[in-house]
Amino acid sequence: MGITTKILYAFLSLGVVMVWGLTLNGIVRKIFARVQGRIGPPVYQPFIDIKKSNAKRTGITHGIMFYLGPVFRIAGGVGTYMFIPVIFGSEIFSNFSISGDLLLVMYFIFFGQLGMALGAGEGGHPYSAVGVSRGLAQMTAFEVPFALSVISLAIQHGTLNITEIVAAQQGGILSWTLFTNPLAVTAAMISMLGMNMYNPFSIVIAPQEIPMGPPTEYQGSFLGLLATNRGIFAGAKLVLFMNLYFGGATSLPILMWKTFAIYMFSVFIGAAFPRFKTEDSIKFFLKIPTAIGLLALLIAYL
């Protein structure tokens, strides 16, 4: 398979995952609405929102870094995605999975956030500044258990290649990491709550406190870009979690329902709880999940 085909396939699968990510977003909104006793927006609402944002006639900018914020963000999203094999054994959905891609993915998850922080800071709005500091603080916090979990996984499987980790989980439900290394999965799932920014960890956007946080100043196509990235990044993250902990997917339907189930976890928690304060959130991540992560690491090491 030539590099051109590979890139073509990669972008094709990117499109598929993006659409799926946004659809998931729409479904989740609908589910939230049901919990709240209402009907909720149509499932395709995220697509209209993106289209609408891009159709804005005017826009403002605060300088070059302001432009780069969303670009970094989407680069982070695409970057994360590009190195995750999406469907095990599928040519089209294998992406650029290489040995050590796990490290790259970890890096890219960070990358988008940092870029966003730079761009949002350029906006000059105090809410952005507060939001950025909150976001970075929380990210640092939830990265600890997540990283511990991933390291534990790498030790368990003795590899840094996601494809190999997936391969190791094939052969029945009991060979999933969920059952082979439950502590690591617990730590990772809790940190995913923070990553998905649903309650109680929605401190970055926190409409009642710092309206919208970092993207306060973003509008129009910037916002469209950010919203698109929400689809890509959510898809990528879910696929990553699916690959690492839930045995990956061998076909598109399996991928769809597994990612949905993983997503539902954070929705399940999110609908029930209010929002943490920043320091509570950091304390939370640095306590139990980190302890579990360490324990997982320890067990894996042993």
């Binding site: 149509p42 929102d49 919208m212 973003y218």
Partner: peptide, 22 residues
Amino acid sequence: LTARYDISRFGMAPRPTPRQAS
């Protein structure tokens, strides 16, 4: 905006910042 009349059915949502609101 809330459950009884649920304007989100029509794709409307509150937006806290004027930059993004229409």
